[in-house]
Simulated assay, not measured.
Amino acid sequence: MKKTLIYVGLAVLAMAVIIAVVKVNKSNSKPVKKYKTEQLKKMNIVNKVVATGKVIPLEEVEIKPQISGIIDKVYLEEGAIVKTGDLIATVKVVPNEQSLQSARGRINSVQIQLSNAKTQYDRNKALFDKGVISSQQFEASQLSYNQAKNDLRNANNDYQIIKRGSAGSGGANTNIRATASGMVVEIPVKKGYQVIQANNFNAGTTIATIADMKKMIFEGKVDEAEVGKLKMGMDLDITVGAIEEEKFPAKLNFIAPKGVEESGAIQFKVKGDIRIDSVKQMVRAGYSANASIIIEKKDSILSIREALLQYDKESKKPYVEILVNKEEGKFENKDVELGVSDGINVEIISGITKDDEIKVWNKENKKDKKKDD
């Protein structure tokens, strides 16, 4: 009985050894996983910041009415070229009834004063001619009479201004004229629109906007992560969406000191003067545009794709895996020093040479996994 148990135990042990040997042989027979490799290449790398925005005129002048009323006629259309003093529109005055009645009452009051002053003047003149009163008394009555006539004239003018918008026949207040030369880029009113003059409580209604279309600027926004890299005077390459295959050179001349939050991110306004002298096509106000601001540029430098980089979990230093044994598929970690980057490619300053083969992390195929299993 004991011998039988011994034989059974030996048989089980032998089977276990055989299974272990088979597994080892099977594992040793697995093919070596192969990875693609890349080497350093000479590239031109440009590190730049892209700002999105629009093209607008450097100077825009809003034309406001000098008096409230209703637009009677608009003489120009958007796109018209005007000079200072050109007539843009006319306004028909709609008088305030209370102000009108007050002006009428003032006229009546001044007329009474004038009648009384005239009576005194006529009486004193007759007495002065007879030598009854002194010249001083006569001149005082004459002064009162002249002041009363002047007051009546002013009261009538005030009444006409309230009623018609002008005291004379020229209609200076009702004629809306250009206060600057340029192109009319916007006329937001039409005949029949009610307009309000500018005052202490209201900016007034804009009749037209005039701009010099030969002086344009780019106005855009840059994220807070990039604004620290910008400096005044940097070169900009402006690309306008509506004008294909055309780049406009510009200079960065403004960086906002305060950011504005938009969709959870802080954005800073930037501006740049655009040179459009050589552009044949008209650059219209409000075109959407992108500005490329070159931070750093290097030509023909040894670089790799940033996708090949890895970072140490503890030190956070960058490294790559270098092939050291092709037959066994062994790789070795090499720390690298990085230079300029454009987000896709990065300069390698030191750590590896142009002959080193850098590991490319391939995705394993499902067929390979099944074969390994």
Rank of each mutant, 00 (worst) to 15 (best):
K297A: 04
V32E: 02
R153G: 02
K64H: 09
V320C: 07
P31R: 03
E357Q: 13
K326W: 00
Y193D: 14
L114D: 13
I70R: 12
Q281A: 09
D158M: 05
V185T: 15
A242W: 06
N124D: 11
M216Q: 12
D158N: 15
Y7N: 09
V132A: 08
A167C: 03
G168F: 01
P31Q: 04
I274P: 04
I71Q: 08
E246H: 06
I88L: 13
K191Y: 00
Q281Y: 05
Y75C: 05
D212N: 14
R106I: 08
I88G: 04
A20Y: 15
S144C: 00
S109P: 10
N156P: 07
A20M: 12
F248K: 06
G351H: 02
M15P: 03
K64F: 09
N200W: 05
R106A: 10
V195S: 04
N157I: 10
Y35W: 12
S278D: 13
G286E: 00
N333P: 15
N362I: 11
E337G: 01
I294D: 07
D212A: 04
Q194V: 12
I176R: 03
V110D: 13
Q160K: 15
A172R: 09
A256C: 10
S278M: 01
S135Y: 13
Q120P: 07
A285Y: 04
A11R: 06
D235Q: 11
K369L: 14
P95E: 03
A178C: 09
Q142V: 00
T119L: 12
K125W: 07
V283H: 04
I6P: 07
E328K: 15
S303A: 15
L100I: 02
V320W: 05
I63N: 06
F254A: 02
A20D: 10
F254R: 07
P188G: 02
K2E: 15
Q267M: 15
Q120H: 10
G204D: 06
V50R: 12
V185C: 04
K118L: 12
M232F: 09
E357G: 06
I71A: 02
I45R: 03
D223Q: 12
Q136Y: 07
K367C: 00
S99Y: 01
T353H: 02
V49E: 06
S278V: 01
A180H: 13
S315K: 15
K48E: 13
L40P: 13
K163Y: 09
I6A: 04
K221Q: 14
